[in-house]
Design a protein around this nucleic acid. Structure first.
Lengths: 152, 152
DNA sequence: GGGAATTACTTTCAAATTGCAAGTTATAGA
DNA sequence: TCTATAACTTGCAATTTGAAAGTAATTCCC
């Protein structure tokens, strides 16, 4: 799917999301940031699914252009860049947790604990708030390894 | 993305969903069924985004194999097939409505009415129930053109 | 201060996937 | 029986992906 194509009038809500997130890797990048504390190029490359470096660069650019993430130089180390979710990106948490919840119910090999499923089933808004909160805290600490990996 | 590849142990909830829905067309097929009343091959082909016939056939097979939709002969007309969402497929409504809601907030060209956004923002569970209900009713009537196009 | 190492990419090219157009098969209706 | 229609399948060119190798800009280490 072309990620950086010229703008096309969106004819329905779904086409807008799918233009931005209608491929596997964009979603996984967001997941890695939210649940795995990834904020550097290297982190994403090391992630278990194994993105190709060119695809990663392409998607990071696309997500940046669409305003879901920001890039900045690491003030501690000029040869590194830091990637962070914007508010627009963070607003995807409910969507992502619904997808996680769906997997929890329908994936026969689901690894989600009962406790997590309980949160997603009965205290969804709370789960959203927790994931958001933990992400923001982890970012402030410059060591964004959150406890939220148990969700995603 | 290969849709019919051999089974791979899912390492996290997201990979399970993305293996099934990690491409634009699968999502659009579900949307067409939910919000546009599509239940025949022809309907999907006529949909505004313009799927290629081979891609459509591939995705319908994939979604069937993954248990999100079912295929059956139209009892009224033996040369037509009917496609319907299963419970597993219907359970995607919350995920899809969250994505629609996100678009409503962030797509500068959003066409969603205030009334719809109010439902999604403040009465989300109700919106899910309405979409599900209307889909099921429309299917029973064999003329599945629902009022829900206003959502998706 | 200079060479090696590291990080974040870009480039190249083969392989896989997509999309368009042109069949093909099965059933229906006249 | 002849024609039309619905649901595909096939062939092929064009696009996208993925693996590997290369490059530029720091930073580390002696």
């Amino acid at each position: 799917m072309t990620q950086n194509k010229t703008y096309k009038m969106t004819v329905c809500p779904m086409t807008y999301v799918l233009e931005i997130l209608g491929d596997k890797w964009s979603f996984l990048i967001i997941r890695d940031m939210l649940f795995r504390g990834c904020c550097r190029y290297k982190h994403f490359i090391e992630s278990e699914e194994g993105v190709a470096t060119n695809i990663l660069a392409n998607r990071l650019k696309s997500l940046t252009n669409h305003g879901l993430i920001t890039q900045c130089k690491d003030p501690q180390n000029g040869r590194q860049k830091l990637y962070h979710l914007t508010d627009k990106g963070l607003d995807l948490i409910p969507s992502i947790l619904q997808l996680v919840k769906w997997s929890g119910h329908h994936d026969p090999n689901s690894i989600l604990s009962e406790k997590i499923m309980h949160y997603l089933d009965d205290r969804f808004d709370e789960a959203v708030a927790i994931v958001r909160q933990q992400y923001l805290e982890a970012c402030q600490q410059d060591a964004p390894v959150t406890d939220c990996h148990r969700f995603g």
